[in-house]
Every structure is written in structure tokens, then in C-alpha cells.
Amino acid sequence: MSHDAHAADSPHIVPLSVYLTIFALLMVFTVLTVWVALIDLGPYGWLHTPLALLIASVKATLVVLWFMHVKYGSRLVWVFVVAGLAWLALLVGITVGDYVGRTWEPDPHAWQASADGADFRQLG
């Protein structure tokens, strides 16, 4: 791990064809995401958002790996990219989780019933 791939003395030059392929893929996915958004999925209409996010993630991954050279980069950059995504997931996930959880109504009567039914003497 002494020197990264992009060290000054030996830059890693990605072939032109790779860039053009990635570019073409990004275009295809752009058309795909618009198309998917416009078609009628019927009872599966809720899939629109997950599908759109999935396609966006694929596009972002293409950009990160090839345009931003992470594929050829050091392990350290990988670690930080993954850490950043994990932290973003924590922020979004836990916050949205709170809002989802607010719709679950706690049922104190059920707790009371289970407390009444429990035999606490066994604990002592």
C-alpha cells in the first residue's frame, strides 16, 4: 500500500473505450428510469420509488467507480466511501424509523395483561 495507483510517477490512464461505455450506460439508465416512471405498474405502483432509487444507485455507482476512479484507487478511499454511505444510511434510516414507529400504537392494556399474567415470584 505504499503508493496509490494515481501516484504522480505512473498515472493509471483509463482507456477511452471504458469512459465511452460508462457514458453509454448512464444514458441507457437515464432513459430507462424515465420510461419506468411513466409506465403504469398497476397494483405495483408503489414500486416506482424503489425502482427509481435503484436505477439512480446503479448510475451513481458507475460514476463513482469509473469516472471517479475508485475502482483503481486505494483501499483507504473505498473505506471512506463506504463509511460515508453507511453514515448517510444511519441518518436517513433512524430518522425515518422514528416517523414510521409513531404510527405503531402502543397498547398498554396488553402490557398490563401480560404483567398480570406473569408470575413474578419465580423471578425472586
Binding site: 433512524i94 424509523g97 422514528d98 416517523y99 414510521v100 414507529g101 409513531r102 405503531w104 402502543p106
Partner: peptide, 18 residues
């Protein structure tokens, strides 16, 4: 330390499960 921030919000109306 990043996973505990909700303990400032126990009486705020946050979900009790959170």
C-alpha cells in the same frame, strides 16, 4: 456516539419505540 442522539428527544413526541 452517532447512534444515541434520540435520547435528547425522549419527551418530544418521538416514537416510543425509537
Amino acid at each position: 456516539g452517532f447512534l444515541v442522539w434520540g435520547h435528547h428527544m425522549f419527551v418530544s413526541g418521538q416514537s416510543i419505540y425509537a
